[in-house]
């Protein structure tokens, strides 16, 4: 099965954590992607720009409306994702929990249809 691991954290953290700690997390994240590739779990992964850069659009009665910012104002925001292949939810949860950024935020593990 494929699962999407949505990596969420308080997006002010990169600015407030000690720089060395943040640099280590970034390094560990890149290494973890490579490890998932080696194990055959990796499909795709991307990190996103900060939520301030988001624009939310809707189409109503054929007209587009746009609002500044993400669709929900939450303390923890989606900051990136990893799309994985896993045998079942147990394996997917294990992979999700080991994503380095889960140490400072959380990872939503969702099956892909």
């Amino acid at each position: 099965m494929r699962y999407l691991c949505l990596v969420c954290f308080d997006t002010t953290l990169p600015d407030t954590l000690p720089p060395a700690e943040w640099a280590q997390l970034v390094k560990d994240s890149a290494e973890y992607d490579r490890e998932l590739q080696r194990q055959g779990h990796f499909i795709a992964a991307e990190a996103l720009m900060s939520p301030d850069t988001a624009t939310t659009v809707r189409l109503r009665n054929g007209r587009m409306s746009a609002t500044d910012g993400p669709f929900a104002e939450l303390k923890e925001q989606v900051a990136g994702f990893i799309l994985i292949e896993a045998a079942d939810l147990n394996e997917a949860m294990r992979i999700g929990a080991n994503i380095p950024l889960a140490r400072i935020g959380c990872v939503e593990v969702r099956p892909v249809m």
Partner: peptide, 14 residues
């Protein structure tokens, strides 16, 4: 069914 929760005894780590 949908999230793929297995019918399995978890591995030693979990």
């Amino acid at each position: 069914r949908d999230a793929g929760i297995p019918y399995a005894v978890p591995g030693p780590a979990e």
